[in-house]
Design a protein around this nucleic acid. Structure first.
Lengths: 232, 232
DNA sequence: TAAAATCAAGCTGTATACAGGCTATGCCAT
DNA sequence: ATGGCATAGCCTGTATACAGCTTGATTTTA
């Protein structure tokens, strides 16, 4: 979760080692994706160890995972730096994600349950409630994260889930960077539209269409981005 | 194997930390993929640390990477065990690899250079030389590894390379397990055929066909496997 | 005899001290 | 004044001792 305060509160007494690892990993990942740590930020093992009240060892493990996810670069003697993604790679990943989204409906799709519908309904409502809260890009990003997680669960092909998630988090903050440039109304309307389209497809138990809409939305992002880069 | 002796010799004096990490990582990965460590094998940090003449710390880092690659499972208090892949997951990954192979020719394909041709020629020759060396499944597997690496370099889409490689190594040993059941002649002829088809496509600078042939070969493997499982 | 509790041995997880690498600052020589 | 160099301070990398967990054998008890 994403809010730091909440996370701190949520720490249970009898937390196991793996749980703590996941908690800290998600925490740092979200800080990077929400630009709390913008690209170029130097993360110190020692400082974070002190913040979380543990030693450097588990923090190092989290760092190595973040490095594997492509979110940081670890350099001996220098530090651990939040990566910056160039536009070329960004486009490549979006191309890839478009294809992966379409696969979602084709490789081992799962039956859609009322739980799934309830989840997407909640996301639609959260987004609707943001209609007049101009500039709530953070909340928009959190909804996008949850949508990604929901869509991940719509295929029984576990490796495809993994890969989709990997690519999502690798570019999430770049998307977040450009969000304000689209303007609040456009960004909000776009996301609401995608959510409603996906919801409709889910109600019809038509996962192929879900993937199709997702793919269209990724293409839309690429088009918008290209226009933004051409204008100035 | 990756013979231990050779590896030991190959260690240069001024090896950097990252280089040593890669060396040990590749070594253990290959031992797992070539079934030197069959599924279920328990790997001990202490034992391997002693073998490589270092402490447990860097070995642990390698273990965590292997876990991320899906090749081992680390359990606190128990040990680090080589994973076993069920057939369902195996099929899912092959389905995924088929799609990824086709993307190779579509997403940012690179220009094929004489170097690439030389590499594929060498692989074809190595395979031809195995014609009458019945049972050299190890060498066949090593050639397959090198082919995978070559194909990875035929797309400029780096994330696609990563993912393709990830999925390859995750099922490599399962493929290797079934190889003897196909019989030497069939296994050898199949691989030689794939290599020659891919070579021809590369000579024509037709990466799309390269991916297509690769995809066909993956499908052939799935079909053969299905037949094997149906017979007994 | 059988079931339950105990203990021992092995493993990974953590903390910590120390070694090694990088960088910037400041001094010294030119 | 400036270029080169030494050095201090930070960082990550490594080694190691210890804590915690799991499992299976052993002993105890009903």
């Amino acid at each position: 979760m994403v809010k730091i305060a909440e996370t701190a509160i949520a720490v249970s007494e009898d937390e196991t080692g793996a749980e703590r690892f996941d908690r800290i990993y998600c925490e740092l990942r979200d800080r990077i994706c929400l630009l709390t740590y913008p690209p170029g930020t130097v993360l110190s093992e020692g400082a974070l160890a002190k913040e979380f009240g543990i030693s450097r060892t588990p923090i190092r493990r989290v760092f190595h995972r973040l490095e594997f996810m492509g979110l940081v670069t670890i350099k001996n003697g220098v530090g651990t730096m939040v990566t910056d993604i160039d536009l070329k790679t960004f486009k490549q990943i979006y191309d890839l994600r478009k294809r992966l989204a379409e696969m979602m409906g084709e490789l081992s799709p799962v039956e859609i349950t009322p739980d799934h519908i309830a989840t997407i309904d909640a996301l639609v409502n959260r987004t609707r409630n943001l209609a007049d809260k101009t500039g709530s890009f953070d909340e928009l990003a959190l909804i996008a994260n949850d949508l990604q997680q929901l869509l991940s669960n719509l295929t029984g092909n576990a490796p495809l889930c993994e890969i989709t998630e990997l690519m999502y988090y690798r570019v999430a903050r770049i998307w977040y960077t450009f969000l304000p440039q689209f303007g609040w109304d456009k960004a909000h309307a776009g996301q609401l539209n995608e959510l409603e389209e996906i919801r409709a497809a889910m109600v019809d138990n038509d996962i192929r269409s879900v993937g199709h809409y997702r793919s269209i939305d990724l293409q839309r992002m690429l088009t918008l981005l290209g226009r933004l880069l051409a204008e100035p």
